[in-house]
């Protein structure tokens, strides 16, 4: 077994991972919390993108309009990533071998990088610039892809 596989096996056999694995209520609750986090991210990015495109108001600074959504998207990320790590902690090796999980992780990395490097600075900037609108639309599509990858993982794991 590879070094990474051994590391995953150690996590899988930890008391935290086995406690989650053995409890349907804990697993289901974590799954619900994970979905709530994703809902917060997708909703925040969507509403923020509408604000950036000038669809909500045109007479207010965009940074003020998107302040709450930017914060909420980070809260959503913390919730979904923490709960997601706990959810896969008892099936890391199986998850890593699943194509849908790999795609979801790739989408997550790309979406997170884009979120912090492109989308967040754009959401603090000027409204209605083509690049700003594009940043909002791409961020939404990337997070939408993460949710889609999650659905595929749930259904085909």
């Amino acid at each position: 077994m590879s070094g990474l596989g051994d590391f995953f096996s150690q996590i899988e056999s930890s008391s935290l991972a086995t406690t989650i694995r053995d409890s349907t209520i804990l697993t289901g609750t974590l799954s619900g919390i994970h979905l709530i986090g994703l809902t917060l991210i997708v909703g925040s990015v969507l509403v923020s993108s509408a604000g950036l495109a000038g669809l909500i108001v045109n007479d207010q600074p965009v940074a003020e309009l998107t302040r709450a959504t930017r914060r909420a998207s980070i809260v959503g990320m913390i919730i979904s990533i923490t709960s997601g790590l706990l959810l896969v902690s008892f099936r890391l090796n199986m998850s890593a071998a699943t194509q849908a999980f790999r795609i979801k992780m790739l989408m997550l990395v790309v979406a997170t990088l884009f979120h912090f490097l492109v989308y967040m600075p754009a959401a603090r900037g000027q409204r209605s610039a083509v690049a700003t609108k594009l940043a909002g639309a791409v961020a939404f599509l990337l997070w939408f892809g993460v949710v889609l990858g999650g659905c595929a993982f749930i259904l085909f794991e």
């Binding site: 979905l35 809902t39 991210i41 997708v42 909703g43 925040s44 969507l46 509403v47 999650g150 659905c151």
Partner: peptide, 13 residues
């Protein structure tokens, strides 16, 4: 799931 994330994500705002 996708439509739930989409619609509840908006309603929350």
């Amino acid at each position: 799931i996708i439509t739930l994330v989409f619609s509840v994500g908006i309603v929350v705002w």
